[in-house]
Amino acid sequence: MDPIGYVDDKSESRLYIGNLDLRITEAALIKMFSPYGKIISEDFLWHTRGPKRGEPRGFAFIQYSSKEEAEMAKEKMHGKLACGRPLVVRLASEKSQLETANNSSKAMGEGHKIHFTGNGVGQTSRSAKIAAIKNKLKSIEEESSRPKKQKQTDDVS
């Protein structure tokens, strides 16, 4: 979806599938969603870094050949239990619209927080926010790469 709000046909036939149990495989996901139409692509997301590297992230995207097939799959599969967990199924365009709405409301709240702390700036620049996120990620990576400290026990015989 672009900033103006235009949604192309591809995004209208693409589904976001969330709340996936980590035991669900790509093959199982395709098998669950194939009765509703022709699947033309599937993106099963994996952790690429950190301690969970190579493990599923718990969500995926499925692209159908038509908007109608995607809507049918959404209607039939949303809330359906898979490995004991209810699936969250939305059109991918709906997911991005919800995130945009949530992020803009969070940003407004953050802007007020910054203003009330006496910063004087009112809002931080985009590049400053990106730099802060990069620094946070770097510190997390450094923290996870450090050897764990073990408790020392004093043997007094």
Rank of each mutant, 00 (worst) to 15 (best):
S157M: 03
I17L: 04
W46R: 02
S104K: 14
S127E: 15
F116K: 12
R126I: 11
K31G: 00
G58R: 01
L22Q: 04
L22E: 05
K134F: 08
E69T: 01
V89Y: 13
G118F: 06
I24T: 11
I133M: 12
R14A: 10
L20C: 02
N19K: 11
K80A: 09
N135P: 00
G5E: 03
A73H: 09
S65D: 15
T117Q: 13
K151Y: 07
A73N: 10
G118Q: 05
D43C: 11
E26I: 03
S13D: 01
N103W: 01
P56E: 04
K113A: 14
E99G: 01
A132Q: 10
S96C: 06
G79T: 04
K136Y: 06
S13N: 07
L87Y: 00
V88Y: 06
E12V: 00
A132K: 10
C83M: 10
E110A: 14
A92Y: 11
I133S: 08
S105D: 11
G79C: 03
D9S: 13
R53F: 03
E143I: 03
G37C: 06
H115L: 12
T25W: 00
I39N: 06
L81E: 13
S157V: 05
F59A: 05
K148W: 10
A92T: 02
P86C: 05
C83H: 15
S13F: 01
L15R: 04
K67L: 02
E12H: 06
W46P: 01
T124H: 12
F61C: 07
A92P: 00
V156T: 11
F33Y: 15
G122T: 08
E12T: 04
S11E: 14
A82P: 00
S65T: 13
Y64A: 02
A128L: 03
V7A: 13
T117F: 09
D2F: 05
K10V: 08
A131N: 06
G111L: 10
N135F: 02
A132V: 02
D154H: 06
R85G: 03
K31A: 06
E142V: 06
A101S: 11
